[in-house]
């Protein structure tokens, strides 16, 4: 009679955790796909101004960033500086920057490039206007003023 034990084990059956890695992997893949690593280390302080009527920037691969703000390094003073890629630049470097960014893109998409201006809210418009004039001269006409979205001011 002992051959078929109606084994009624006393211990609670453990919860099956075999599918736990799968769940974690799904989460992992989600974050892997959505991750965008920061391309540039910021060398200027930037607190973006707020705006209500904002649009999302389409096609990140077609966006080039221009940063303007006070240098993080205090020894460089408090005058607003322009940062292109990973170094400080002057207004005169903008045309070269535009050509380089254009050349890095697909030929068919070059005309659709956007130049996003990430400018600190306390910057004076003088430097921003200079940058805009240079962009105009370089025929980079589509620009985007980066802002933080707020629902109401």
């Amino acid at each position: 009679m002992a051959k078929f034990k109606t084994s009624k084990t006393k211990a609670e059956p453990a919860i099956n955790t075999a599918s736990l890695p799968d769940i974690i992997f799904i989460l992992l893949f989600f974050f892997m796909v959505t991750t965008t690593m920061r391309e540039n280390t910021l060398m200027v302080k930037i607190k973006l101004p707020e705006a209500t009527q904002v649009q999302k920037l389409q096609k990140k691969s077609l966006v080039a960033y221009i940063y303007i703000g006070e240098p993080v390094n205090k020894t460089l003073g408090t005058k607003s500086r322009i940062q292109l890629n990973d170094s400080y630049a002057t207004v005169n470097d903008i045309p070269e920057f535009v050509t380089k960014e254009r050349q890095a893109r697909n030929e068919a998409e070059r005309n659709m490039m956007t130049f996003a201006l990430k400018v600190d809210e306390n910057t004076k418009m003088g430097i921003v206007t200079d940058v805009k004039q240079e962009l105009r001269k370089a025929n980079a006409l589509k620009i985007n003023y980066s802002t933080r979205k707020v629902l109401k001011r």
């Binding site: 959505t34 991750t35 920037l57 589509k142 620009i143 802002t147």
Partner: peptide, 18 residues
Amino acid sequence: VTTTMDVDTGITRILPPP
């Protein structure tokens, strides 16, 4: 930790041609 989920938003404008 490394993810930055910042969606770039802003006001898009077309500059007048030179």
